[in-house]
Design a protein around this nucleic acid. Structure first.
Length: 261
DNA sequence: AGTACCACCTGACGGC
DNA sequence: TGCCGTCAGGTGGTAC
């Protein structure tokens, strides 16, 4: 699930629940979700510390500890955070649990185990080490144009390529292309300035709207194709049945009438 | 440079 | 009911 808007929502969630509280204990319930850090090192880095601030880059959430280092969270396809008071509420698929001195708990929940938790010395070098491009939400038009221009593959692949632009995944790439009226297989090379600008504004608009609605697909505007992402789904604009096609191994949904090839 | 395929995991769903 | 293939919004590696 978690693409940029989802991670932004998770960031707000962590900010409003877990900042400035002393960590009492850390339980790694499944060490496979850890990147390069061992359970012991992670425990030592977090225990008796506090989360000071957070930042997001693409689909990564970075949590700054008062000790100086950063806890890095990636949510894979099924990851999320859950904050709760009663230990009996510890959710299923809890892979890592942080107990605060105040008696509350923060769980990193990840059913499919495709996420990753790690420790980094520095946020910038972490982002560089992951080869992430600029964050889709902080991007200016000139940078965007330089990234898109000259690409010879499908536009959707470029939008989803985290090395080029960080934060957009399969779902929101489809939505951005729908809102812009572009076919997912469009070759970026051929886009003129006008279309590039529309695509840029479409990207910003979709991300902002999704964040405003807590990245909850049920709350998104009816003009959004995202809610129709299922077999038999129809175009919210012209009502024609959506098409499905594989692009770089992922399923793309698009409207054959509204999204010109 | 771009794509196709596989792997990593767990679970839901439809067909037989 | 049970088995099996397919699919699912993540990334990374390989071969072409």
């Amino acid at each position: 699930m978690p693409e940029l808007p989802d991670v932004e929502v998770i960031k707000h969630y962590l900010d409003s629940t877990s900042l400035h509280q002393t960590i009492e204990k850390v339980t790694v319930r499944n060490p496979k979700i850890l990147g390069n850090v061992s359970p012991r090192v992670l425990r030592e880095a977090l225990t008796a510390r506090k989360f000071q601030t957070t930042r997001r880059h693409g689909k990564y959430l970075l949590v700054h500890l008062d000790g100086g280092s950063w806890l890095t969270l990636h949510f894979g396809m099924t990851g999320r955070l859950e904050y709760f008071g009663d230990i009996c509420e510890d959710p299923r698929y809890d892979r890592l649990r942080i107990d605060f001195v105040n008696g509350f708990h923060l769980a990193y929940v990840c059913q499919r185990m495709l996420g990753e938790v790690d420790l980094a010395e520095d946020a910038e070098s972490f982002i560089k080490g992951k080869n992430l491009g600029p964050d889709a939400f902080g991007l200016d038009f000139t940078t965007f144009r330089n990234i898109i221009r000259g690409r010879r593959g499908a536009i959707k692949s470029t939008l989803m390529n985290q090395r080029r632009i960080a934060g957009i995944g399969n779902i929101y790439a489809d939505e951005i292309l729908f809102q812009t009226g572009l076919h997912p297989n469009t070759v970026p090379d051929r886009l003129d300035e006008e279309m590039l600008r529309r695509l840029f504004q479409g990207m910003k608009g979709v991300l902002q709207t999704a964040i405003d609605h807590h990245a909850d697909s049920r709350r998104l505007p009816r003009t959004y194709v995202l809610r129709q992402r299922h077999k038999g789904g129809t175009c919210p604009r012209c009502k024609v049945e959506l098409r499905r096609v594989k692009i770089s191994g992922r399923t793309a949904y698009y409207c054959p009438r509204c999204q010109a090839a």
